[in-house]
Amino acid sequence: MKPAVILVGADKGGVGKTTVSRALLDYLAANNILTRAFDTEFPRGTLKRFHGPIAEVVDITQTSDQMRILDTLNSAQIKVSVIDTRAGALSATLRALRDVGFLEAVKSNDFTFTLLHVLGPSIASLDEIAETAPFIEGANYFLVKNHINATTFFEWDPVTNRRYFERVNPAGEIVIPKLDEMAYEQVEIAGVPFSTFVANKTAEGDPANSSFVLRGYVRTWQNKIAEELRRVRLLDILAQRT
């Protein structure tokens, strides 16, 4: 298996990048894929709060941290790295990856690169698609429609929809369904991975006392995401079984 990098990002804030990263890490763990995660929300690190043992907080604009991620891709025993970019840092991260030659190496087939571009329901968010297009050659580029509320992605307006979604040729779209607000907040309070919450455990592995209804909502939501990731054959992409 070649080293694989999954970049989860968006330039717009509040579209649920870290939520998608967390769901992704749970999915990979459930499929026995050992993963390391990099949280670029420096210095606070939201992802780190939920996935502490496998996540490191890095400043992607710093050379030393770029080295921590990229120079270890070949040497690390864990072959899948998930990078959760902080708000506003997708373009900067892609430029940095281009400048250090990572994107060239992807084109040469040295690494597998998957970009999960998380979209919010706004024109500003859709504008990012065009800005991202120059960087996606050789990458598995997925548009992630994160339904953080009941809104649509301009599907009701074919002109607007086409204008944005026809500019690029993504490998596919991934739809993240809406999670019940109270369930989401309870996981926030618990500060554990979604799967740990569903298993009714604390971060320390002790029995928790979370509502079955809320755990059920999270489990159903996770199952739908897993279905989406299976549909786009993410595991095959990581294993180069395309």
């Binding site: 019940d180 607000e181 109270m182 369930a183 509502s211 079955f212 209804v213 809320l214 059920g216 909502y217």
Partner: peptide
């Protein structure tokens, strides 16, 4: 409401 669902379902169990 989610709270109402919790009040019922968690008690049923």
């Amino acid at each position: 409401s989610t709270q109402g669902q919790i009040d019922v379902i968690d008690r049923l169990l």
